[in-house]
Every structure is written in structure tokens, then in C-alpha cells.
Amino acid sequence: MVSLSPNSTSDRSPSRVMLALSNGRRFAKTHKSIVVGAIMVGFVVAMAALAPVLSPYSPTRIHPLDRLAGVGSPGYLLGADQQGRDILSRLMWGARSSLAIAVLPLTIAGILGLVLGSVAGYIGKLPETLIMRSMDVVFGLPPILLAIAVAATLGPGLVNLVISLSIVLLPPMTRVTFQVVTTLKEQPFVDAAKVSGATTPQIIFDQIIPNSLAPVIAYGASLAGSMVVFGAGISFIGLGIQPPQADWGRMINDGREVLDLHPHVSTLPGLAIFILAAGFNFLGDGLRDLLDPRMRM
């Protein structure tokens, strides 16, 4: 039965990605936005990973004497904040939570959405009504307020922020999977699997989910950039990562009070958010073109 799976031949299967990657130069030329995005995101990932090695100070160490040191002052490449904490170190450590906020909720909501959307789309009937109508209710709520309400309920912290963003992302991920699956289940290979005696769960997990992966990933990737901005925004309000831990959104808000004389304190973290979000957005655009040309913009 497994041999009937069209995975190996489907032109949207991961093998196409590998093939494209192997043609390095041509790939770079035709998929400029993937390359640009990968470089930007890669830079942030490297900073986050190497923070323990590269960061000049601990992100939480206070040097009252050096408060509000300017950009380029000795020992402080990017200056220091009101408490004299090194901004560069805080940016490097803060990259970790920003990356987690961009990737984790999408992954969690993506996996749950794939399962729920596949079940609803493939089985139809009661599961479809239950799943899709309750998603409609959640989808009907304004996303930012839902995230704020959930985060306010669960209390501040990275884990809770990830949970609240996952809840917001679940309805759209489920809907996209549902739409992909409703067209997918008319394909002949699903009938072939049925004829060969596969059970419904087998079909869902062996046929439906693997084949709806590419478009769902493409859709999810296109949201990563917005998630960075959105998640940092919730930290900005004060509901995300708590001080003294470094977090970009929080750093912007904390720096607001000295904006007039020391603009670098709040604008540098914003620049970091912008770079990461733009990287993900370029990457997402490129991946969408690569994985799901139908959605090309």
C-alpha cells in the first residue's frame, strides 16, 4: 500500500527542493528572495547561537556608571541602556526568544492544524462540522486581542506567549489544510489506497498529511515574519518575556522614555525585529514560489 503513495513522484515533494538546492548557482539566481531571506535569518540565528561566546557582557549585568552610553562608546559597540546594560549583548540574547516566537507557534499550530484539517477535510460529516465551525468561532475573534487575552490569562513568560500565539494560528492553519485536503481527496491515489484496503487513519497519515505538507508549509512560512512583529508586540505591551531577561519588544518599550536624547536604546531593538521579520518574509515569499507555485504573487 505504501508503494502506492505518490510521494516519490509528486512534483511538490521535498525531493524537488533537494533537486533545486543542488543546482546552487541557478537556484540563487531564480530564487533571489530565498537567498536574501536565508542570509538575514541565518545572521540572526548565528547571533543567537553564539551569544554565550560572542556577547561582550551578560545581558542582565548592570553597570550604573555606563548608563546610556552612546553607540560606539568604548566597550559598548551599540551603547548601553538606562541601567547601563550592554545593548549588543541584550540584542544577541534577545534573538533567542524572537526566533522561538517566530518558529515554535507556527510549528505547533501547523502540526495540530494538519491533523485537524486533514480529519475534517477527509472524513467530512460530523468531524468537519465540529472542527471547522469551532475554528470559525475562534477565527471570528480579532487575533491580536485573542492573543492578548490568552497571554494575560496565562501570565507573562515565553512559554505562555508561545501558547497564546499557537491558539491564534490554529484556525488559519486548519483552514488551509482543510482546503488542500478537500481537493486532495479526489485524487486517484486516495481511491487506490482505499481499494487496497487501507483504513481511514492509515489514509490520513500515510497519504493525506504527507501530500498536503508542502502547501501548508508554504503558507506557514509566509506567516513567520508577521509572527516576529506580532510576538514582539505582545512583549512590548508587557505580556511576553519578563525583565530582566532580554527581549526585543520589551527593550523598545523600556527605551521609549529616553527617545528624545538617546534614540538608540529603543530603535536598535526595533531594527533587529525588522531584520529578522524581513528575512522571514523574503524566505516565506521564496518558499511559497518554490513549494506551491499556485499561490505565487
Partner: peptide, 16 residues
């Protein structure tokens, strides 16, 4: 893409 990636709370600060 730039506009999509710009946090409004950051852009607002720069504008101010």
C-alpha cells in the same frame, strides 16, 4: 516586504 516587516511600534518611535 519592508513595510510588512516593520513593527509599527518601532516605526512610530522613529517618526516621533
Amino acid at each position: 516586504v519592508f513595510a510588512l516587516s516593520m513593527p509599527p511600534y518601532w516605526l512610530g518611535l522613529i517618526a516621533i
